[in-house]
Amino acid sequence: MGLDFGPSGEQDGNIITTTIDKVVNWGRKNSLWPMPFGTACCAIEMMATLASKFDLSRFGSEAIRFSPRQSDLLIVSGRISIKMMPVLKRIYDQMPDPKWVISMGACASCGGVFDTYTLIQGVDQFIPVDVYIPGCPPRPEDLIDAVLQVQEKISSGASPKGVEVIYE
């Protein structure tokens, strides 16, 4: 977390120093509120990830919000059709900054086996994606791994993919 003890280097004092960024990022990292956008079988795996057996709350992400206004992590899990893409884009736009996006599974990432007229061949053509998860569908462990990668990204101070500068 980048904590340092006081200027004198003594450990008996009650002063520790850090930077605002690091404290804020630490908070963000450990309280990601996901907005689930489940449209297919990946969503079933996402539910399993959130339920007791895999228990995503161990990583601080259990507060699933079905309102984009209260979320900072969008999990796109499933096929996105050309009729659904404007809805997804709108939800992404409604989420407050900073926000991160996980593209879960083959369909969301590249269209998967559905190389057809109606399916978006990868949501990253229209919204910025931070972490991709391969698999059809991915195991819950893969989704946990992706959340951990987002956490790593946050604590490293890197900007989300869709935002150019967030820290002054």
Binding site: P86, R90, T116, Y117, T118, I120, Q121, Q125, F126
Partner: peptide, 19 residues
């Protein structure tokens, strides 16, 4: 006679119009 991969609908569409 409709192509399986469409006529480009999946790559280009107008977000503002659809919203």
């Amino acid at each position: 006679d409709y192509p399986l991969q469409g006529r480009g609908e999946r790559e280009r569409f107008n977000f503002d119009k659809q919203n």
